[in-house]
Design a protein around this nucleic acid. Structure first.
Lengths: 205, 205
DNA sequence: ACGGCATGTTAGATCAACTAACATATCATG
DNA sequence: CATGATATGTTAGTTGATCTAACATGCCGT
């Protein structure tokens, strides 16, 4: 693995570039870094990256993959600590989602902003963004069976719950909660929202 | 108003540039148009825009103002047709919100993506994005008084309802609903979500 | 009328993405 | 182990876009 000649051939430039890009995005707070900066940070010339990425958007796509897998890992992690079938498990997923988005606000725009909308490589973007969703799906399924909610609604329900967390994340990032509800915090808003919603479900069942 | 000499001094270049930018964004589906294209479309040279906008982001900011005011107008319009105090009024606002975002997907990334997150000019962005929110606030306030919900929760409630619509819009634009619930449409999802949520409120009251 | 200021124009500086042509190391294969 | 194909790197340069400088024109107040 260790390169015999430390000069020339980098050894793992592809990953080094992704890491450099992630660092630059986090430092600058947005994705408008220059390709050459990522190259320099990886210790190579300005043309080297193009041996590994067709263009800058290809690199951004790899960064996006990284971000989505991190999100998935975060969501998977909190599930280890929650009792399956409880409303708390669902809420914990939503909180992990919002926590990730607020702690990595610079990624949010990438994941859901312009690049996301374009959905260049639909199949890849499907895969990666769905990881966390399947975990939510599982939690919702267990909650439904414990609360005598029709199985057929699990998918629809999960989408709605996802939307709630996603919407709160976006509105928080934009600063609307701080502006209109300075005393509130997103996590308790998600908690009460989810409880209210699930209560409504039980009543309408 | 009409310029005596049709050449040289344009007369209303600032607005012409904003309009040109809007057209280009809509045609191209994203905001990566060249400044010179907007200039050409307005019939001026490449340097002329800089007499009206410090740089390209300043132009984008004006476009953003336009988009937000359009959104506000759309939301205001549907309120004319809805009985105040009804759940339908709240739902109609959400639907108008989602309709605008899906019909102008190229604006969504601008309004909520990278540019939005940066929130360069905080005060201006406050103003413009709040227009629609105050209309929602009003509808929620009337609904609360008709349903004996504590007045103090109006603001919090409105944020939550806004989040629901915003989240559904984002998830739709990204294609997740089409993928996971191909038979569903966003508007009925918003409708049932809102009803469920309001039902939960009445029960927990 | 005329002078100042807003608003245009052309030319060009700067910078980032990307490409071409060449260089070097690694690896498969005899 | 030799050797050539291939992967991966370098330098130099093209292109295209933003923005600036210096100059031109015409509108508007006095």
């Amino acid at each position: 693995m260790r390169p015999k000649h430390p000069a020339y051939h980098h050894g793992d430039l592809r990953n080094a570039l992704i890491l450099a890009a992630v660092e630059l995005i986090e430092e600058r707070g947005s994705a408008d870094f220059a390709m050459i900066d990522a190259a320099r940070r990886a210790g190579v010339s300005s043309a080297a990256p193009y041996r590994h990425f067709r263009d800058k958007t290809a690199l951004m796509d790899a960064v996006l993959d990284f971000a989505f897998s991190e999100l998935g890992r975060n969501i998977a992690a909190v599930m280890q600590t929650q009792p399956l079938g409880s409303a708390e498990a669902i809420i914990a997923i939503g909180k992990a989602y919002i926590r990730f988005m607020t702690q990595h606000r610079e990624f949010y725009a990438l994941m859901w902003g312009a690049t996301g909308i374009r959905a260049v490589d639909q199949e890849v973007s499907d895969e990666r963004s769905a990881v966390g969703f399947f975990i939510l799906l599982d939690a919702v399924e267990h909650w439904c069976s414990e609360n005598e909610i029709a199985e057929q609604d699990v998918l629809q329900l999960s989408i709605k719950l996802w939307s709630m967390a996603h919407g709160l994340a976006g509105i928080t990032l934009y600063g609307h909660i701080e502006r209109f509800l300075p005393q509130a915090d997103v996590f308790s808003l998600l908690e009460s929202s989810t409880h209210t919603f699930l209560e409504g479900l039980r009543k309408l069942r």
